[in-house]
Simulated scan of single mutants.
Amino acid sequence: MRPEFIESFREALDSVSRERRYLSLLEAPPLEATKDFVMGLLEKGNPQFVALVGDKVVGWCDIQRGTRETQSHRGTLGMGIVDGYREQGLGKRLITTTLDAARAMGLHRVDLDVHADNTRAARLYEKVGFQREGVARDAVLIDGHYIDLIKMAIIF
């Protein structure tokens, strides 16, 4: 990730969010908030990678390290792939690159939440070494439908 990709990243995040299926966001935050998020990750050295087609972001993966001293050994992963670019191996390349960077920075644990009905993503996470740790029942409400979240983590 580089600062010049922030607007395109926000557009990709917004596109995936508005599908109302994969993320627990219904739309991307405003551009300024997105800039603050990205620049905060970059300034702290958190792993953050994007997949580009030309100069257009079509996928991303980031890990935000815990801010408290007692949780600085762990990070939380977020990722998404824009519709039309899924099922091409892009997600696996993004997540393995990001996990390698997390290992290199000394993280011990990375966790994530995945919508229980997003079986494709859950399979990907398991393929790269994540294990299921539990389920948060009815944790997300989108369009009047409750969705369970699967809690997953990988330990290095």
Rank of each mutant, 00 (worst) to 15 (best):
M1W: 06
M1P: 08
R2C: 08
P3Y: 05
P3C: 06
F5S: 03
F5Q: 09
R10I: 07
E11H: 10
D14P: 03
V16Q: 00
R18D: 06
Y22H: 13
Y22G: 02
L23G: 04
A28V: 12
A28K: 04
P29G: 04
L31T: 09
A33F: 02
A33K: 13
A33L: 15
T34N: 05
K35A: 11
V38Y: 01
L41G: 01
F49C: 00
V50L: 07
L52D: 12
L52C: 11
V53L: 14
D55V: 14
D55S: 14
D55R: 15
K56N: 09
W60H: 02
D62P: 05
I63T: 11
Q64V: 15
R65A: 08
R65Y: 02
T67C: 08
T67Y: 08
R68L: 14
T70R: 06
R74C: 03
T76K: 09
L77M: 13
G78V: 13
M79V: 07
M79I: 12
M79Y: 04
G80V: 10
I81N: 00
I81G: 00
D83Q: 15
D83K: 13
G84K: 07
E87C: 11
Q88A: 07
G89Q: 04
G91T: 13
R93N: 09
I95L: 13
I95P: 01
T96R: 05
D100K: 14
D100W: 00
A102E: 09
R103Y: 08
M105F: 03
L107N: 04
H108F: 06
R109D: 11
V110F: 00
D111Y: 09
D113L: 11
V114E: 01
H115R: 15
A121M: 10
A122L: 11
R123W: 08
L124Q: 04
Y125N: 04
K127W: 01
F130C: 08
F130A: 07
R132N: 07
R132C: 07
R137I: 05
D138N: 12
V140P: 02
I142N: 01
G144S: 10
H145R: 15
H145G: 03
Y146F: 12
I147T: 11
D148W: 02
D148C: 01
L149G: 04
L149Q: 09
L149C: 07
I150G: 02
I150P: 01
K151M: 13
M152P: 00
A153L: 08
A153W: 06
A153C: 09
I155C: 08
F156E: 14
F156I: 15
F156R: 13
